[in-house]
Amino acid sequence: MTIAKFDRWKELDDAYTQFSNAKNKYFKLREIAKQSIDVVEEFRFGAPGISREIAFEKVRDLPLEERKKIFPDLVAYASYAHGFTEESRNLILEFPREWVLLNIEEVAAPILKNGSHEEYSAFLDLYELISPALFDSLIQRCAMSDDQEIKEIASLRAQKIRF
């Protein structure tokens, strides 16, 4: 083996060791954080220096009963397009369906009251996953909107359903 090849293997081995050490440190700190951090408050209000990825990961670790406290926050995150829209939807879909049906419209109402086509479109995507009746109700609301862009969403979605 040439010295150059040996150096590359040594560099790879060193990188793996650093990766493995960092991964082990991460899992140890994650366990400590689970015991000492109020995840609900941290998620709701943010914590300086904490990435959204870590916040969502901590939420995934919460029991469903604890997650109910941040259901409005999850719905808000699911109401527009960004890097955590799908993760927010997935966490919402983990709640019992009947519980979601009883609670989601009340949480969504203030968002939709002043919402643009972006919020309506995001809620249609979410409602389509939750309940056909909920989806249909929002389609009808879109169709009756004074906002032309929101009205157009209803038309486009209706065309999509026909095909």
Rank of each mutant, 00 (worst) to 15 (best):
28 K>Q: 14
148 Q>C: 03
20 S>Y: 09
140 Q>G: 04
15 A>C: 02
52 R>I: 11
25 K>C: 07
45 F>M: 09
30 R>Y: 10
27 F>P: 03
44 R>T: 15
17 T>A: 13
98 E>V: 09
138 L>C: 01
40 V>I: 15
156 L>W: 05
148 Q>M: 09
115 G>H: 06
25 K>D: 14
101 L>Q: 08
96 P>V: 06
27 F>V: 02
31 E>K: 13
112 L>V: 05
23 K>R: 14
154 A>V: 02
83 G>P: 00
127 Y>P: 02
50 I>L: 12
122 A>C: 15
95 F>K: 05
155 S>H: 06
83 G>C: 04
137 S>N: 12
29 L>G: 09
154 A>L: 01
72 P>K: 09
113 K>Y: 07
127 Y>V: 03
114 N>Y: 10
54 I>S: 12
3 I>Q: 10
80 Y>E: 01
28 K>F: 08
25 K>V: 08
152 E>D: 14
70 I>K: 03
97 R>H: 15
26 Y>T: 08
68 K>C: 06
29 L>H: 10
159 Q>V: 07
76 A>K: 12
114 N>M: 08
74 L>W: 05
124 L>R: 05
135 F>H: 09
133 A>E: 15
130 I>A: 08
141 R>G: 02
22 A>D: 15
140 Q>Y: 00
120 Y>V: 03
73 D>L: 08
34 K>I: 00
96 P>H: 08
112 L>R: 00
44 R>F: 00
140 Q>T: 10
50 I>V: 15
100 V>A: 06
67 R>S: 05
127 Y>F: 15
50 I>T: 14
161 I>Q: 12
92 I>A: 05
17 T>D: 11
95 F>W: 06
70 I>N: 04
100 V>S: 07
49 G>C: 10
51 S>K: 11
20 S>L: 10
3 I>L: 11
121 S>I: 00
4 A>E: 15
111 I>E: 05
9 W>F: 14
89 R>P: 01
88 S>R: 03
147 D>S: 10
132 P>K: 07
